[in-house]
Nucleic acid binder design. Structure first.
Lengths: 393, 393
DNA sequence: AATAATTAATCCGTCATACTGACTTACTAA
DNA sequence: TTAGTAAGTCAGTATGACGGATTAATTATT
């Protein structure tokens, strides 16, 4: 991270976040334990804990331990301490949730979204937001804001997400903020899913460097570096789907040929079937109707395995992650077939002594994106590092 | 970056580094200017500047400006304030320099290195170090230590740099430290070159996110993220040479097929000539004897252009850098031919509104690696962020 | 030449925060 | 009942950034 000038006050915010996040990761830890694990003094921890309690973000619980000495006072997140909305806007549909501070999904709403113009979509989003807030009866002063996940790239004049022509996440963000008056944080879908897996998943919890491969309609990824989401210079890092895996191969909407996404993605499967005369109405219909026993699917998968394996190898060689996690809203059977067939993985650099498998399955289901989106307002509010690394978000 | 607990003292070290680096980047800046550009108060800057002067790392110079008001006191790096050695160990040869705090090369020594066993190479390295230190008459208390650049990967049990079987940078580092008693910082060659370009080059100075492609005997890269070198989970990120660019293509020493390095690298060129019956004794002989007018070279280049273009595109899509800088110890003509033929570049995500070209030529020549290595001890000594991100270094 | 304006840099008192060591609290073990 | 132990708090200290006033060194104006 770019170093920036610090003073006591900024340093304190960092420490406060650190204490909060330690309690989140290790629920039930006591003040003394936090002091040990962070290296700060008992006293400093005590003060910060008191402040977080006063803010309502954490709470004490009764000690259950029976040991020599004064029993510790276990601390945990106060789920009712804060609330946020998460939106996941994708081609033709939108999901929205209310999440509490613990990340529990309290309420959700899915609806189709036919107006793909941000100017018109925003009214539907705002209506959904109002309805959700009313439904959960969120106290106004406990509401942190809205987290918005859309397909990338954004901030790229003249270049829209390939499947959402005319779309611009940044404009939607501005419009939604103006319409609602709430703070709106934005990130792309792959990055949101990565954040969710890192916070809520069992497998990725506590990892500091990993890549999350988002296998969905298209193919994206999220990169976690040193426990922070890596967005690149313009927030669009990790565009795995447009890695060239078959030189001179299928044409891609991005203008190139042979992109991974044209071989390995739900969209690619549907196109393949279509080329063979079988029309599939939607990704959902695809998931419900087909599986890998279908000969056309089976041959399609066969053609995608080598590209997929090479893409994973590229991620290992370029990012040197602790592991690669694979998830997304593609059907489970599809993701699992690709993971199985990707073995044996190609050799790569990176550490040989691994405690983790080189590829692991994601823990969270299709909710990952929207749950990750609902984390963004918290990061914006409380994590000074996130604010610094994502000034646009 | 992983956040870690901070206190006033650590915060001060960050600020001190920031002040030092600001003076390095903008030589001649005065206290008031540093205050403006860092956001710290005049007073804080004044104190930190005084401390850096007392340490001998910076010095005041006479003001030349004629303006209204008290003339500023320009500050600049004190080149004699500190010294470091830089070593670049590569296949069969070693370069070593003494650099002062300004990064000026005061003295150098190149020699062949036949013993590729770290255990035996270390005696030659230490002898070179002693000779250089004596030659420049470095005051002992101004000597920061040795920076060591070797080909990666390291820290990978059972996996050596492909062209240096049995080699292990980490072991060499330990041995050299034990033999010399000096602190030894280690990084791989691509990362060192990246650091050098970022500090000493005109084109990369001040960039925060970029990728440096190291076109040499092999093909490596260095990734700068948020003004910090990105090493990945095990320090081996950026292994561009082993990106699969031609599925089922040439066999590579890494065990795969179709790696970029087997198409685009000096080694690949020499192998190509060899396959056509022309033996080339060394990379130097190659550079001296051939150019792109040679029909075999010309056809070899033709076959490499598409793989190279795809590799650049992969870097853009995955890292979303501000720009990609291309350099290395391959002959200039070769690098320039590839850069020219890579155009037009393939479409990628990442910002369209660019102030920089998508690819730029490196500023520094073959010295980049060893000069970057000589920066490592300074980073280890003075930059708290570097220490935190590179505990092994 | 005197004075005003301007900018750089320092002086000095204040403030926020982490640290240290002593102390208190609440428990178990003997 | 007493000793031992670990958690947590209290009170005082140290560090370092901040802010406003002051000093310093120069040009511009009259």
């Amino acid at each position: 991270m770019m170093l920036s000038a610090t003073n006591v006050v900024k340093a304190k915010l960092i420490n406060r976040w650190l204490v909060f996040d330690t309690i989140r990761r290790e629920s039930g830890i006591a003040r003394a334990g936090i002091a040990t694990s962070t290296g700060l003094s008992k006293q400093a921890i005590s003060d910060l804990v008191d402040e977080l309690i006063a803010l309502g973000l954490i709470k004490e619980s009764k000690s259950a331990e029976r040991r020599v000495g004064k029993p510790p006072t276990p601390l945990c997140i106060n789920p009712e301490g804060a609330y946020a909305l998460g939106f996941h806007v994708d081609v033709g549909q939108m999901s929205a949730i209310v999440a509490n501070l613990a990340g529990d999904v309290l309420c959700r709403r899915d609806q189709s979204l036919n107006d793909l113009e941000p100017e018109r979509a925003v009214t539907e989003l705002f209506a959904a937001a109002k309805a959700l807030i009313r439904e959960v009866k969120i106290p106004r002063d406990r509401f942190l804001g809205i987290g918005l996940a859309t397909p990338g790239p954004f901030g790229v004049a003249g270049l829209s997400p390939p499947r959402l022509p005319g779309w611009d996440g940044l404009r939607l963000r501005t419009l939604l903020h103006e319409a609602s008056g709430f703070p709106v944080s934005l990130s792309n879908d792959g990055q949101c899913a990565t954040i969710a897996e890192w916070r809520f998943g069992d497998a990725a919890r506590g990892l500091t460097h990993f890549v999350y491969v988002y296998f969905g309609i298209g193919m994206g990824s999220g990169v976690m570096i040193n426990s922070a989401i890596f967005g690149g210079a313009s927030g669009n890092a990790g565009e795995l789907g447009h890695l060239t895996v078959v030189p001179g191969g299928h044409e891609c909407i991005c203008g190139k040929r042979g992109c991974l996404e044209t071989y390995v993605s739900v969209d690619a499967a549907i196109r393949h079937l279509s080329a063979e005369g079988i029309e599939v109405a939607s990704p959902a219909a695809f998931a419900a109707t087909f599986d890998d026993s279908h000969p056309l699917i089976s041959s399609w998968i066969g053609a995608g395995v080598e590209p997929f394996r090479n893409a994973l190898n590229a991620l290992e060689n370029l990012f040197d992650p602790q592991t690669i996690m694979i998830g997304g809203n593609a059907p489970d059977w599809l993701i699992e077939v690709f993971m199985a067939k990707a073995e044996p993985l190609l050799p790569s650099v990176g550490r040989i002594e691994r405690t983790l498998p080189r590829i692991i399955r994601s823990d969270l289901g299709v909710d990952a994106v929207v749950r990750g989106a609902a984390v963004l307002p918290l990061l914006t509010t409380l994590n000074p590092q996130y604010r610094e690394l994502n000034p646009h978000a």
